[in-house]
Simulated assay, not measured.
Amino acid sequence: MISVRAVLTGLGIAFTAYLAARGLAWTEPVDFPLVIVVALSLYLVTTWLCIFWNPPPRPRPGPDGRPGLPIGVHGPTTLPVWACLLAFACAVLVPTSIVLGVGVANVDEPFATWYLGGIGALMTIVMVRRRPWIAWAGIVVLGIASMAWMGVVDALSLGLVGSIVWVGAAQLLLYSMDRAARDTEHLTQLQRAASAWQAAQLVRGRERRVQVQRALAVAGPVLSRTVATGGELDDAQRLEARIAEGALRDEMRGPRLLDDDVRAQLELARRRGATVTVLDEGGLDGLDEASLTVIRAQLADTLRSSQADRLYIRTSPDERIAVTVVGRSAAGSGLSDEDAVELWHEIAHPD
């Protein structure tokens, strides 16, 4: 399949070759044919170099200031400086060389005025290759040279106006294309952000459904017995209700700290009469599942070895410590707080 770029390149080559061929269609004797041929050769070489020379694309800043898509992916690459200087030199030398080659008497002949469209086409190519200052400077030089040799009216009527319009239209088209590319890139980033947000919402929704199902599994039997007995529960049933209540609080306050092993140890602690508080205050944000598994395993081991009457399990905002576990005894008023602490264990972030 032929690309748009290939079509435009072919049109550019055909058009510039046609303009150059007009310069060889002499209908009158010329003074210096060799000068004309050299000027035509310089023009064709310069024009085709500007069309075909493509350095590696360089990144352009994205909408947020970071490197975005490279120039050349959605538009032409920037013309090298040496090619710009060559194109400008061509705009300076070719008009005067053609006039001197054909003779002053033939300056308004078609084979002598081709350079008005030829240099205009070259500066249009330079504009498309993202060198607007060089393109407009070449048009100014072309205008000065053509008006000096054939007069203002003849220069404007024989092709100078068309060259100016080409360059201006190329600049507007390039600006519109770049703006469309930036808008497309910005919309792509917004779409990615929206997709990421939607995925995060789906994950959160799935987690909530899992928590609701687990809560129903824990609290459902207790609620059923409570309704069936009209609220009259014996000691064993009250214990089961307290354990279910604590498990539900754990699921709401610290779900990332829990797995089956940790839940089993928390239940054992409550069955022996301990009061357990689990709080996840954001210290585990950003950890992957492998790190959470390591932390949960250490937490389960810590709970398994503890006989404290009150257990406090909290995530830590410290960069090194992930979870802090504090165990206190049911000490009387005669003991200080330090004496009442039976367990102090810090679980570090996995390396």
Rank of each mutant, 00 (worst) to 15 (best):
L258F: 11
I119Q: 01
S305Q: 12
E28I: 10
N106D: 08
P29W: 02
H349I: 11
I321G: 01
Q171V: 07
P29L: 07
T96L: 04
S329C: 11
G138F: 01
D339V: 10
G159M: 02
A244C: 09
L69G: 06
D154A: 14
A322N: 09
I134H: 05
A244L: 10
M147W: 02
V153L: 10
G118E: 03
L156P: 00
P221A: 09
V203F: 14
R314F: 00
A247F: 04
L258A: 09
H186I: 00
I347K: 02
A290F: 00
L268S: 13
R131D: 04
V218G: 04
V152L: 15
A148W: 07
G246T: 01
G205V: 12
V278F: 06
D285L: 09
V222P: 01
E267G: 11
L268R: 15
W26I: 10
Q198W: 09
L268K: 12
A91Y: 01
R192N: 13
G118N: 03
A181E: 03
G246P: 04
E232V: 14
P350Q: 07
N54Q: 15
A274R: 04
R192A: 14
V152N: 12
V4N: 11
L187Y: 00
A322V: 13
I2Y: 00
I313S: 06
V341G: 08
D261R: 15
G12A: 14
G120F: 06
A135F: 04
G143T: 03
N106M: 07
